[in-house]
C-alpha cells in the first residue's frame, strides 16, 4: 500500500526579480498502484512537483505525503528515473544497477543475482560490463530504469524519462514500460510534456498550466490494459482524449 498525496502544496524560489512561484496550491492523490502522469508546458512546475515527492525539495507551504507521512528527504523507496539518465560514468552497467542495493547493504551474492535479473529483464545482460559511454541513449535509459527497479521501490518517480530519446526508441521503451508495469504494479508518478505518452501509459492524467502553475484539470483514462501503443493510438477514443487535453492546454495559454 503506497499512496502519494499533495496537500495545498506551494513552492517558491527566490530570485533577483522577486519570488518565483514554481508550484501554486496543488492538491491531488496518487492511489496505491496507480499510474498517474503530469503533463504541461515547460516551466509549469511539473518537474518541481516530482522533486518534492523525491524529497529533493521541500515545499514552501502545504504538505507532501507518502502513506500519510511527511516526506523528509530522498529515499530509495521512491526511486527516480531521470530525463538525462544521470548514470555514474565510472561504473559499469552492472555497477550502476547495483548502486542502490550496495547502499542498502544487500550482500554481494544476492545483489549480483538481483542485478543480473533486472539486466535480463531490460535486455542488457550482454552489456553488464560495458560503461555508460559505450551505450546508446535507449540503452542508457534501460540502465536507469533497471537501477530504479532493482531497489524494489514502493513508488517510481519518472521525470520525462523518454524525453531525450528519438521517436522510435521512445515508442519501444514506452511499450517495455507498459509490460514491466503489467508484471509489477508499483505506484508511478510520471512527468512528461507528451500528451500521447501520458494517455498511453496512465490511469489518470493531471494537466498543469503555467500561470498559475497549478493542476487545472484531471482526466481519467479508461483504456483497457494491457495496452498496445500502435493500436491504441489510432482509435477514435484516443484521438478524442488527446484533443480534449490539447484544447484545454491551449485555452490555458
Amino acid at each position: 500500500m503506497t499512496t502519494l498525496r499533495a496537500e495545498a502544496v506551494r513552492k517558491t524560489y527566490r530570485s533577483d526579480a522577486g519570488d518565483v512561484i514554481a508550484v501554486d496550491d496543488v492538491s491531488f492523490t496518487v492511489e496505491d498502484r496507480e499510474f498517474v502522469s503530469v503533463v504541461g508546458p515547460s516551466g509549469c512546475g511539473k518537474t518541481t512537483l516530482l522533486r518534492l515527492f523525491a524529497g529533493l525539495e521541500t515545499p514552501t507551504a502545504g504538505r507532501v505525503l507518502v502513506d500519510g507521512e511527511r516526506i523528509e528527504g530522498p529515499s530509495p523507496e521512491r526511486a527516480m528515473v531521470f530525463q538525462s539518465f544521470n548514470l555514474f560514468d565510472w561504473r559499469t552497467v552492472r555497477g550502476n544497477v547495483a548502486f542502490g542495493l550496495e547502499r542498502q547493504g544487500v550482500p554481494e551474492a544476492e545483489r549480483r543475482e538481483r542485478v543480473d535479473d533486472w539486466l535480463d529483464t531490460v535486455g542488457l545482460a550482454d552489456f553488464a560490463d560495458a560503461y555508460p559511454d559505450e551505450l546508446s541513449g535507449g540503452m542508457r535509459q534501460r540502465v536507469g530504469l533497471a537501477r530504479a527497479l532493482a531497489v524494489d521501490p514502493d513508488v517510481l518517480l519518472m521525470d520525462e524519462p523518454f524525453g531525450a530519446l528519438d521517436a522510435q526508441t521512445r515508442a519501444v521503451l514506452q511499450s517495455e514500460l507498459l509490460d514491466l508495469w503489467e508484471d509489477r504494479r508499483t505506484t508511478v508518478l510520471f512527468v512528461t510534456h507528451d500528451i500521447e505518452e501520458a494517455l498511453l501509459l496512465s490511469d489518470r492524467v493531471l494537466v498543469m498550466g503555467a500561470a498559475p502553475n497549478a493542476v487545472t484539470r484531471t482526466v481519467d483514462v479508461p483504456f483497457e490494459r494491457p495496452r498496445h501503443g500502435r493500436e491504441l493510438e489510432t482509435t477514435p477514443a484516443f484521438a478524442e482524449y488527446r484533443r480534449e487535453i490539447w484544447d484545454h492546454l491551449r485555452g490555458e495559454q
Binding site: 523525491a54 524529497g55 529533493l56 528527504g73 530522498p74 529515499s75 530509495p76 521512491r78 526511486a79 527516480m80 531521470f82 544521470n86 555514474f88 560514468d89 565510472w90 561504473r91 548502486f99 542502490g100 550496495e102 547502499r103 542498502q104 537501477r147 531497489v151
Partner: peptide, 21 residues
C-alpha cells in the same frame, strides 16, 4: 542528487559519487 535518491548517506555521497567522479 541521484546518489542521495538511491540511498547514499552524506558521507556516502563523497565516497561513492564525488570522489570517483
Amino acid at each position: 542528487e541521484t546518489g542521495r535518491v538511491f540511498g547514499a548517506s552524506r558521507f556516502g555521497v563523497y565516497r561513492h559519487v564525488l570522489l570517483p567522479a
